[in-house]
Simulated assay, not measured.
Amino acid sequence: MSEVKISAEPRTEFGKGGARRTRRAGLVPAVLYGHGEKPTHIALPAREFAAAIRKGGANQLFAIEVSDGTQVLALPKAIQRDPIKDSFEHIDLLLVRRGEKVTVDVAVRLTGEAAKDTLIVHDHDTLSVTADATKVPDHLEASVEGLQAGTQVTAADVKLPSGVELVADPTLSVASVTAAPTAEQLEATLPEVEEAGEETAEEAEAGEETAETPAAEGEQAEAKTEA
């Protein structure tokens, strides 16, 4: 994966108030740490960072140039997002060096088509691996081509690029192939749905009768008064 150059500014304001002001300025609060060095608080341009993550994935390598002259390489270690706005709230960045091995979680994509009348369940969509910090793959691939129902694809079945080693348990299930429900099985559920619908209708009719009773009694009471 190629590195993305991105500028950064030293961050001197901390706490929730400082973070909000940073985000309002179009920046994302971040911290650089690793190699036994004291954490460095910086702010990254939100739009540029988001574009890089969309293109390169969560393990995108960044060449960060801080305005004070500092230049470092870093990988995102933890990214906090606003679940409603889908914006970045805070980023933890791990300092790395060229040639250094790092352990990361990489996305797994399923390729191919399983046998007819089957369903595929993606049990785990990431796997933990070690790789050169400058050569972390943006994704891994696992084939389900032609697999029959009852088959599993494990971590050991996933293709690993040269220089990438598996850290996850080799027996970990990445995907499971199950039999798709037959038409008869689907039809077997229909009577239950219909019965539930009939009960609901009966309850509705009973509710209408109950609702009409007070009104009828009221009309009788009015008739007696007039008499």
Rank of each mutant, 00 (worst) to 15 (best):
A196E: 09
P45M: 08
V174A: 07
A196Y: 07
L166S: 06
V167K: 09
P137L: 12
G218S: 11
A196F: 01
R54C: 04
E3N: 10
S176V: 02
A114W: 10
A223S: 13
R23S: 09
A78I: 12
G56T: 03
K77R: 13
V66S: 01
R54V: 00
T40E: 10
D132P: 12
L73V: 00
A50V: 08
P191S: 02
A201T: 15
A149L: 01
L32W: 07
H139Q: 13
E145G: 12
A114D: 03
L73Q: 05
G36K: 02
S2I: 09
A107H: 12
E187A: 15
V72Q: 03
E165C: 09
R98G: 07
R23W: 05
P191V: 00
S7G: 15
A142D: 03
A114C: 11
V144Q: 04
S173K: 13
A201W: 03
L32D: 07
E192N: 12
V136P: 02
I79K: 04
E13A: 14
G17H: 08
E89P: 01
L119S: 12
L73C: 03
R11I: 01
I6Y: 00
V129C: 08
E202A: 15
V121W: 09
P39K: 12
S173Y: 00
E192Q: 12
K101H: 10
T210W: 10
V136R: 02
Q80M: 07
L140G: 00
S176A: 09
L75C: 00
L166V: 10
E9R: 13
P170M: 01
P161F: 10
S7Q: 14
A8Y: 10
A107I: 01
V108I: 05
A168P: 02
L127C: 04
L73G: 05
S176R: 08
L166P: 08
L61T: 02
G207N: 06
D82N: 14
E222R: 12
E203L: 14
A211L: 13
G150P: 05
V174E: 00
T70S: 11
D117A: 13
A206N: 11
G218I: 02
G15L: 05
L190Q: 11
T130F: 09
P137M: 12
A19T: 04
E209K: 15
L190E: 15
V66T: 09
V174M: 01
P10L: 15
L75D: 07
L190S: 02
P29N: 02
E198I: 14
E37F: 05
P76Q: 06
A19S: 13
A188C: 00
Q71D: 07
E212S: 14
Q148M: 14
G18H: 00
E192K: 13
L119A: 10
A201G: 01
L166T: 10
A25C: 02
V102R: 01
T213I: 15
P83T: 01
P45D: 08
E3D: 09
A51L: 14
S143H: 08
T189H: 05
K116R: 15
V177P: 03
A201Q: 11
E165K: 11
A142Q: 00
E37A: 07
D117E: 10
T22H: 06
V31H: 03
G56A: 06
E209Q: 13
E198R: 11
T154A: 12
G197H: 09
G17P: 04
P214D: 15
L190T: 07
L119R: 13
D125H: 15
T171V: 09
A51T: 07
L95D: 07
G163K: 01
P83L: 04
R54S: 06
V129F: 06
L95N: 06
I84T: 06
A133Y: 01
